[in-house]
Design a protein around this nucleic acid. Sequence first.
RNA 1: CGGGGUGUAGCGUAGCCCGGUAUCGCGCCACAUUUGGGAUGUGGAGGUCGUAGGUUCGAAUCCUGCCACCCCGACCA
Length: 490
Amino acid sequence: MSKGITSKNEDYSQWYNELVTKADLAEHSAVRGCMVIKPYGYSIWEKMQAALDKMFKDTGHSNAYFPLFIPKSFFSKEASHVEGFATECAVVTHYRLKNDGNGNIIVDEEAKLEEELIVRPTSETIIWNTYKGWIQSYRDLPILVNQWANVVRWEMRTRLFLRTAEFLWQEGHTAHATSEEAIEEAERMLDVYADFAENFLAVPVVKGVKTPNERFAGAVETYCIEALMQDGKALQAGTSHFLGQNFAKAFDVKFTNKEGKQDFVWATSWGVSTRLMGALIMAHSDDQGLVLPPKLAPIQVVIVPIYKGDEEFAKISGVADQLSQALKQKGISVKYDDRETQRPGFKFAEYELKGVPVRVAIGGRDLENGTVELARRDTRTKETVNRDGLAERIEDLLEEIQTNIYQKALKFREESTTEVNSYEEFKQVLDSKAGFVAAHWDGTPETEQKIKEETKATIRCIPLNNKQEEGVCIYSGKPSTQRVLFARAY
RNA sequence: CGGGGUGUAGCGUAGCCCGGUAUCGCGCCACAUUUGGGAUGUGGAGGUCGUAGGUUCGAAUCCUGCCACCCCGACCA
């Protein structure tokens, strides 16, 4: 491993790519657009899963699993849905290989599937086909199901975690008796995502709704959380959709309501993906490597011994083991790095690269003084502290770090959000400081499209509970009642 | 998918124009000395030059196809 990584100011993209590979999060695989998530990266994802899964369960949802393959005919049942996904679907056409006689393995043309199968890009169709059999009466509702799965979207251009051809995610799919209840569900799950982003990822997000242009294919309304990365580009971190009766109508899912009348079922779907890993990396990390929020760090505390000779090493290990035990009792994950093959400085650099929030170094002087050197990753500061009450102190420090990196990200977002009142100003801000640009918009898809073509900026969302104010559209000059958030986005 | 670029040991590279089986650094292995911010010395191992063909007495080098990655566009979580 070479020393250091590219500075993020020098080349943000390269900084990101190097960070992902050098911090051992993921690497490219032999398959185009697909990544291998390495153990360290996967353990962060597992922590995200655990936290989210609990939040889903706490809001009444259960996990289930639906097939990877979807009959092609299911797709054509919802017009806008098929339009949205058609261009990026992997299709299974055959079910057997054979030897061609020359030692080559080829597709057996005789083993052609009668109906081709789509590798799911999302599961609405297979799930609504299934729900049809589950729902007869209002008494069967609501259905509150989530699945953890992989999906495939044949992307032209991929980036580790941010956009890969195959990615991991969760997708919630719920069915309700009324429109109100479904909207409430979509909003509830948006709140769950925002809560997760802010309290676990330590990434502040804006909750909002998408414009029709940016809406999910098949949705009536798409809610989203938008985060801002350190390069001033926005990242959609999660979406929650109110699907209306679109899928119920496409798959003929009706129920008998309390009045004894037939009605179509109301639906939602919502998801977050391994893209959150990208958000996590780009929101906090620096030129020394990852900065992980303690709540998602696989290793929260690392202990590094600094010793001369076996005897001192043994004594330090004794102190380290004691501290490890005390920390573990508090539910803090700790690693004592007693490798004799690496020197302390090397270890310091390595754990900084991997984003371990707290480092404890114990040396000969500490043995004499009853102290340790306590270093925090977020500020890269260190101090010598007494061993008494150290576990408690570290417990507090972890919380402080969690709060600090959130506050830092929040401050950055606030400084990177600019209100503009003219198109000139709009373009100037986009090019000079980027970030979110709050501007009046006339509400038409045409204007949004023009602005996108001319500036690469899209409307990230119309914030929920947005302040209403009189104004004129920066592009068309037509009247507008509120500002929307524009940004260049991932 | 269109334009541009790259692919040589685990990583980063020289060599390619002008064909003669490969350079350097880091890392790796052994031993010794070291250990409070990426150690030093000595010795050693490791390469079908992305891949498949072609030209040639001979290909990392020339030609063609394919694969992958990076940057820019269109598309998208």
